[in-house]
Simulated assay, not measured.
Amino acid sequence: MKFIGFVGTNATRSTNRTLLQFMKKMFANEAEIELVEIKDLPMFNKPKSKELPVQVTQLAEKIAAADGVIISTPEYDHAVPAALINALNWLSYGIFPFVDKPVMITGASYGTLGSSRAQAHLRQIL
Results as ranks from 00 to 15, higher is better:
121 H>S: 12
88 L>N: 00
93 Y>L: 15
21 Q>L: 04
58 Q>I: 01
84 L>Q: 09
76 Y>L: 08
49 S>F: 04
41 L>M: 07
32 E>P: 09
42 P>C: 05
111 G>S: 11
104 M>D: 01
60 A>T: 01
66 A>Y: 06
110 Y>V: 13
104 M>W: 15
31 A>G: 02
32 E>R: 10
17 R>E: 08
71 I>D: 03
64 A>W: 04
27 F>S: 06
70 I>D: 05
83 A>Q: 09
97 P>T: 11
110 Y>H: 13
121 H>T: 10
124 Q>L: 12
87 A>V: 00
55 Q>H: 10
111 G>A: 08
111 G>P: 08
60 A>Q: 06
75 E>Q: 13
114 G>W: 00
117 R>G: 03
101 K>V: 08
114 G>C: 06
60 A>E: 00
39 K>G: 15
101 K>Y: 09
11 A>P: 13
38 I>C: 04
21 Q>D: 12
112 T>W: 12
44 F>I: 06
49 S>I: 08
125 I>Q: 10
118 A>C: 02
73 T>M: 06
4 I>K: 00
36 V>M: 03
76 Y>H: 15
72 S>R: 12
35 L>R: 00
49 S>T: 15
119 Q>H: 02
108 A>Y: 00
55 Q>R: 06
101 K>F: 07
74 P>E: 11
39 K>F: 09
125 I>H: 08
35 L>T: 06
45 N>K: 11
33 I>H: 03
18 T>A: 14
32 E>M: 12
41 L>Y: 05
40 D>N: 15
42 P>M: 05
76 Y>R: 14
22 F>E: 13
1 M>Q: 11
75 E>V: 00
21 Q>W: 00
46 K>G: 08
54 V>C: 03
64 A>M: 11
124 Q>W: 06
29 N>I: 03
19 L>F: 03
89 N>A: 15
8 G>P: 01
36 V>G: 10
77 D>Q: 15
40 D>G: 13
115 S>Y: 04
92 S>T: 14
68 G>E: 07
69 V>A: 02
32 E>W: 04
38 I>V: 10
1 M>R: 13
66 A>D: 10
64 A>N: 13
